[in-house]
Every structure is written in C-alpha cells, then in structure tokens.
Amino acid sequence: MNIFRLAGDMTHLASVLVLLLKIHTIKSCAGISLKTQELFAIVFASRYLDIFTDFISLYNTLMKLIFLGSSFSIVWYIRRHKLVRRSYDKDQDTFRHYFLLLPCFILALLINEKFTFKEVMWTFSLYLEAVAILPQLVLLQRTKNIDNLTGQYVFLLGAYRGLYILNWIYRYFTEPHYVHWIPWISGLVQTLLYADFFYYYFESWKNNKKLQLPA
C-alpha cells in the first residue's frame, strides 16, 4: 500500500469519525443530508458483498466493517434517535435521491467488466458513490450557517477522493497492467463534484471567515 492510498483511507475514516462525533456528542445532524448518508450505506452494502468470500488483508476487512457499520449507524441515528432526528433539516434536504439509484444501476448493467451479480453490484457502487454527495452539496448551498464540523466532514470526503486519484497515478506507474477505467472515471467525476466546494472552503479559510456557499 502506498502513502496516497493510506492517507486517502485515513481521511475517509476521519470524515466518518467527524460526522459520528458531531451526531453522537452534540446530538445534532443539522446540515447533514440523510439522502447522501443513505446512498453511502447502499454504496458500501453493494460494494462489500465480497467481505466474507475474498480475504485480502485484516486491514481491508476491518475497514470494510467500519465503513459498513458507521454508514448504517449514521442513517439509524438520523432516522430513529429521538434527539438527533429533531435536528434533521427535512424541508431543506429535498434532493430526490432515488433518481440517482436507477440510472446508476442501469449504467452498471450496461458498462461493467464482467456480467456477474457481484461485479455488477460492485460497478453500481462505484457509479453511485460518484454522485452520492450531490444531495449533501445541495443542502450545503441552502444552509446559511454551515457549522465547522459539517464543513470539515465534506472537506475530508473530498480530500479522500483526491488522494485516491494520486494513489491510482502512483499505482499506474509502479504496478504492471494496472488499468481500471471504471473506477478511474467514476472517481474523477466524484472528485470534480467537490471542486466548487473546495474553492469556497479555501477562500473562507484564507480570509478567516465562516464558510458559506453562494446559492
């Protein structure tokens, strides 16, 4: 494992921890999109179907369990915890996320590396992950006062994607036959979706001002 991949996994892990910290300690999910969180839970559930069949490393299995467990518990918190669900901005979080599910699934049926159940589900998870942040970005744009933890959460998610691209570039030059178009293109699309957010995040950081996205 190279440094970019490790750093990418760690920022991904940190993003989840920041979100759980916010929800668990402040008992608030203000500014967090349940739609995006549900999509991430579906992403992990469909991607990690191999968790009990293909063993890669203890690290790999543990991380998969952490991402599965955390994504489902975040959804549980927002839907079921009586204090947390009260802080959920239901009226702002209106993105119709099921409109993303069907096109991603059809695309996975059409464009995949092998037409098997596991492979199609894995490809579906990549396409869905690429666009899963959209409801969250829309919600951020509607939120007047983005709190620091929410801003950091989205920043860490974007950093994770950027680091994965560096990891792929590194692996392309150091490993023979390392060409994977489907994860690369969907990963690139995913990272580009964060570009606008990053711009305003750094501007607010540079000017020492509160983060606010233009509507």
């Binding site: 996994d9 293909d54 890669i56 790999n60 998969k64 991402f67 590396e113 894995w122 060409v179 994860p183």
Partner: peptide, 10 residues
C-alpha cells in the same frame, strides 16, 4: 491480456 482485477481498494 489483463490480469484479474485486484479488489484491494476500499
């Protein structure tokens, strides 16, 4: 030909 894809990423 391409080798089997390593699903070693998360």
């Amino acid at each position: 030909q391409s080798p089997p894809k390593p699903k070693d990423e998360l």
